[in-house]
Design a protein around this nucleic acid. Sequence first.
DNA 1: TTTTAATAGTTTTGAAACGAGACTATAATC
DNA 2: GATTATAGTCTCGTTTCAAAACTATTAAAA
Lengths: 165, 165
Amino acid sequence: MKVTHTHACPIAAALNVIGDRWTLLIIREAFYGAVRFGEIRRNTGISRNILSDRLNSLVADGILEKVKYADRGTSYVYHLSEKGRALETVLGALLQWGNEYIYGEGAEPVQLVEKASQRPIKAFAPVDSEGRVVARQDVTFNAGPGANNATRKRLADAAEAGAIS
Amino acid sequence: MKVTHTHACPIAAALNVIGDRWTLLIIREAFYGAVRFGEIRRNTGISRNILSDRLNSLVADGILEKVKYADRGTSYVYHLSEKGRALETVLGALLQWGNEYIYGEGAEPVQLVEKASQRPIKAFAPVDSEGRVVARQDVTFNAGPGANNATRKRLADAAEAGAIS
DNA sequence: TTTTAATAGTTTTGAAACGAGACTATAATC
DNA sequence: GATTATAGTCTCGTTTCAAAACTATTAAAA
């Protein structure tokens, strides 16, 4: 499947790479330090053929790197590249949302916390280039430098529809 | 499909709700203000039966609300609930990642910007309950109040494996 | 009041993706 | 050289998906 339609969209582009039902869970495993085929399988329940296929895709997309590992038999470790580690924000946003809207306060199975204080992370907030937090209602979508005509029209229509933030 | 295995996980729980290939794109449309069946279809290319199914699920999950709309024929609008609007962070994180690692600097089709200054949002950063930004390397996973034994063991193993950060 | 047109679906059918289990390949250890 | 652990591949039945035809509902036009 290829999810792109009239206008170029970084969200659609990202979902084309990591938007299937298993890929983000595999990447979660990589963050948890589960970096071997059998380990990922045990921790997720994904079937062998699909895991094999997804790992190959993730390596091809530059998100994981496959490295020979000294152990019994044929064995490898899959490490996150920088591109893969950058998905931490996506996983973090999903974790926060799952905690807040599925499990609810007081029932969170896993939390992000500040190491030193052990205090939970509250949210992921947009920050500008100086690292300052920008309020949600002050953020909007705009056409970027790579916008094509379809994208510009789409965003103009959306703005007109009173959409967004 | 049901993605949960040994340990309870808010990421897996979130992906069970919004983790299929189309759902987040439908929610993107809602943020863009495209809130009618045909509109979403035109903007995404999703087929009728699947869109119908996903919209029903999203309404059942409390992410969208279906409201009668006065217009030609049978027509409805789908509005984001608070639970749906809270997915802004997930979409934002995907957008930033897609811009940075797929399109690259200078080629971003769509950007998040601060309304007043029009300056682009740089990233989504973890903030604590006082709204202070916490550095990435100071954030880790911990068992939450709702953790079961499998989850505790999983996180302990992960910490031991030198994972996370 | 009947007809037309626009919208939002449902149904059907062939294609693609997925899941489970059997089987294979590779290499370190015994 | 045999054994064993690991990481796959292959096959086949099931499920999900896509595309197109068809149906239902209702506001506006005639």
